[in-house]
């Protein structure tokens, strides 16, 4: 509509009366505003694409010949086998340069007495092993539970991230875009499992990546690679005859805090009710 007004505007100019000048100026401003809104509309429509886009096939790959759409990773931890040696914790720290005081994976030790008292500890995340001395009641049940990011399908951290820095990759790994994260810490508050932290060096949210730099090269995550007892198993649900997805499909597996319906992709074998 503003463009159609262009013709009479020229006519008015020729008349050169004050009133006409007034009108023409308003028309001119209107035209600019109209043109700008038209440009803005195009841009909005353009930007709206990224909001609407789910998973568009055919997008360029970030690097190498790896195709995230062809994988869907899963993870199983067998609690009955864990000896609490801490190899995974040390491996994770070394592989991912995890800052002191924080952990991308850690081991918890549970000791339950006959009276039902539960005591839990995780000194330095299990990095230096566990204290053998036991105090208190007779322990009737004791076990180790390795913890890490659950890489939930419906992750509260991804939902709550205000800038789209936390996301779930097409292959099912929850990651943080360290170049866009503003360091607000909302995702840290939102994670029910305590898997996230603000890295004091980079000032952005940080967490387990399932060693994304390794798994995209066909290697296993460092914690899985270094586990001496086969407690930790990493698999790909889109691969043929995958051992780990077979366990999830056929065995009695549990996830942590299932009532929150976050749908973790980390499953536990032999989980006990004391574990939160």
């Amino acid at each position: 509509m503003p463009y159609m007004k262009g013709e009479p505007m020229n006519d008015n100019k020729e008349m050169k009366s004050d009133a006409a000048l007034e009108v023409s100026r308003r028309d001119f401003l209107g035209t600019i505003a109209g043109a700008l809104s038209a440009v803005a509309l195009v841009i909005v429509a353009d930007d709206a694409v990224y909001i609407a886009s789910g998973a568009e096939p055919g997008a360029p790959l970030p690097a190498g010949g790896y195709d995230p759409d062809k994988h869907s990773y899963v993870y199983v931890i067998d609690i009955t086998k864990c000896i609490g040696c801490g190899s995974c914790v040390r491996a994770c720290k070394a592989e991912n340069n995890v800052p002191d005081l924080f952990f991308r994976t850690w081991i918890e030790r549970y000791m339950v007495s006959r009276s039902g008292e539960v005591s839990v500890d995780s000194p330095k995340g299990g990095y230096d092993g566990f204290d053998p001395s036991i105090t208190g009641d007779e322990i009737t049940k004791a076990f180790f539970v390795p913890k890490m990011c659950n890489h939930c399908s419906h992750s509260p951290c991804v939902q709550l991230c205000p800038v789209g820095a936390s996301y779930r990759s097409p292959d099912g790994v929850v990651l943080v875009d360290e170049k866009r994260c503003i360091g607000c810490g909302y995702c840290v508050q939102a994670c029910p499992y305590g898997s996230r932290f603000l890295n004091p060096e980079t000032k952005v949210a940080s967490k387990c990546t399932w060693c994304y730099h390794r798994i995209t090269k066909g290697m296993r995550p460092a914690c899985v690679e270094m586990c001496p007892r086969g407690v930790r198993k990493f698999g790909d649900a889109k691969a043929l005859h995958d051992e780990v997805s077979e366990i999830i499909a056929t065995k009695q597996v549990h996830v942590l805090k299932p009532e929150l319906l976050t749908e973790p992709n980390l499953h536990y074998l032999g989980l006990s009710m004391e574990v939160r």
Binding site: W106, G116, E117, V118, S119, V120, K124, G125, G194, R196
Partner: peptide, 10 residues
């Protein structure tokens, strides 16, 4: 029973 002495390491 809980002894309220364990926090997640992070």
């Amino acid at each position: 029973q809980e002894s309220l002495n364990f926090v997640f390491p992070n």
